[in-house]
Structures are given as C-alpha cells and as structure tokens.
C-alpha cells in the first residue's frame, strides 16, 4: 500500500517558489491499477517521481507498506528503487546494449551472476512476448516492442510496484491497447501494483480501477474509475472528459470516432 500524505514539492525560480505539487494526499492499494490523470504540466510526473524519490518532496510523507520512505538515503534508497519498477514515455532503453543486456541491467547492478540473470531475462522476455529477440538491438525494434523490453526490464527485480510515466503516449492506438493489455496481465498474474500517469482518459478508462485527477499541482478528484467518469465532480474533470476524443477503446465506438482518434494521435506525434 502506498499512502501519500500532504505531499508538497516546491521548485525555486527567480520569480519565487513554485509549487509543482500542493498538499496532495492519496492512497493506492495493493493490486490497484491506479491512474493519475491531468494535463501536461499538472504535476503528475513529479508526483510519480516522488514515489521512488527521483524527486525529493519538499514536505509531506510517502508511506510504502507503512514505512515513510521520504528520508531514505544511501543503501536504503537504492533498495527502495530496486523494489519499484519504472517505464517511460520514450522507453529509455540502452541503445548500445542488446535486448537481453537491457533486461539484465537491473540485475547486473546488484551483481547477480551472469547465468542467473540471463535465465531471468529470458523468462521475462517470454512474459512480454519477445522470446527470440535476445540478441537484437533497440534500434531494430518498433515502439511497441521497445516498450515491451522496457517492461521486462522493469520487472527484472520482481517489483511490487510499477510506475508508468506516459508509457503509451508515444505509441499508436493499436499498440497502446496491446501494451495496456500486457500491463493488465502483469497486474493480475504477478500481483504488481501499477501506478500509471496519463493525459489520455481512454487509457485510464481502459485499465485503471481507480483514478485521481491532478490539476495545477492539486488533487481535484479521486475515486473508482467508473464513478469519476459517470459523475465527475470537478469542472476540470468534466473538461478533460469533454475534450478527450477518447472513449475510443470502448466496444461500441464508431469507425468515425476511431479515425478521429487516430488523426489526433498522429498530430500529437
């Protein structure tokens, strides 16, 4: 369980301190696929980076299974990060390493022996559907395949939590659906709690059981995905829902909507 309590993150600028996050409190339960939604610059990226302390919060607490992690340093910090996998919008794969070398990277860091880590990496590549790709290089793979490698790499340390930073934003619709399916499978089969940031309501609606809406560093709404979508309380959420051409992944979408969504995606890319 991840309990975020009164989290604030300030950035100092010439014009004075700017709050990227302001007094955010949230609880993410074990086994959740928790969506954090908001427009770009809303602070969702900062929030998720506080969970593995890539960003140091200015005040507030983050409890993981009851332990306040915000003061972790040195070995304790490295161990915390090992226990939390992360994937990124642009995949962040090591270009000079093979697929296998990328997946074994986290194990190499803690000096796991070669045979063991390669064995583990092969199992994980199987999980993400890339068996046989061990000796390829990232530049030879499609975006969706690269994100699968990144997912395998994030799973290498058997994390309990996986953070996804706009993990599907660089992918086309069909690939997005496939990656979301994979994340859902990992959540169900391996019991990994997933915290996912996205600006796309369609993504959140497809796989998140609970969501939180962030705007201008503040938490504006939180609840079960269906409740938030059916009965949005804040104007921001309503705006997000009406602006989003999304709903594209729902089963009864029209081809027209689908085409429109695809167009928007291409524009973004």
């Amino acid at each position: 369980m991840i309990e975020i309590e009164h989290l604030t993150k300030l950035y100092s600028a010439n014009t004075g301190d700017h709050a990227a996050l302001h007094n955010v409190s949230l609880t993410i339960n074990d086994g959740d696929i928790f969506g954090i939604i908001g427009q770009s610059g809303a602070g969702k990226s900062t929030l998720v980076r506080c969970i593995n302390l890539l960003e140091q919060p200015s005040s507030g607490k983050i409890l993981i299974d009851g332990n306040d992690i915000t003061h972790y340093k040195g070995k304790q910090l490295l161990a915390l990060r090992e226990s939390i996998g992360m994937i990124f919008q642009n995949f962040s794969l090591f270009q000079q390493r093979t697929v296998l070398g990328n997946v074994t990277f986290p194990l190499e860091l803690r000096h796991e022996n070669k045979a063991k880590r390669e064995q583990r990496a092969k199992e994980l590549l199987d999980v993400v559907g890339l068996a046989g790709y061990e000796q390829r290089y990232p530049s030879e793979l499609s975006g969706g395949q690269q994100q699968r490698v990144a997912i395998a790499r994030a799973l290498a340390n058997d994390p309990k939590i996986m953070l996804c930073d706009e993990a599907t934003s660089a992918l086309d619709t069909r690939t997005t659906v496939a990656i979301l399916d994979l994340l859902q499978e990992i959540n169900r089969n391996l019991g990994v709690t997933i915290v996912l940031i996205t600006h796309s309501l369609a993504v959140a609606q497809k796989i998140c059981n609970r969501i939180a809406v962030i705007d201008d560093g503040k938490l504006v709404e939180e609840g079960k995905t269906r409740d938030v979508f059916d009965n949005p309380k804040s104007p921001i959420t309503r705006e997000l829902i009406s602006n989003d051409s999304s709903m594209a992944f729902s089963d009864n979408e029209t081809t027209e909507e689908k085409a429109k969504f695809q167009e928007l995606r291409e524009e973004e890319a």
């Binding site: 890539l54 996998g85 790499r153």
Partner: peptide, 20 residues
C-alpha cells in the same frame, strides 16, 4: 532519460558513470 532510468533501478553514481 537513460540516466534517470538507471537511477530508477537503483544504480549508484559509479555504476551510472561507467555502465551508462
């Protein structure tokens, strides 16, 4: 982004210098 990814897996400064 690669440096950040390595940090997210618990890499030390030395490991990032020579592995990344």
């Amino acid at each position: 982004g690669l440096v950040e990814a390595a940090q997210s897996f618990g890499a030390t400064t030395w490991q990032i210098i020579y592995k990344v």
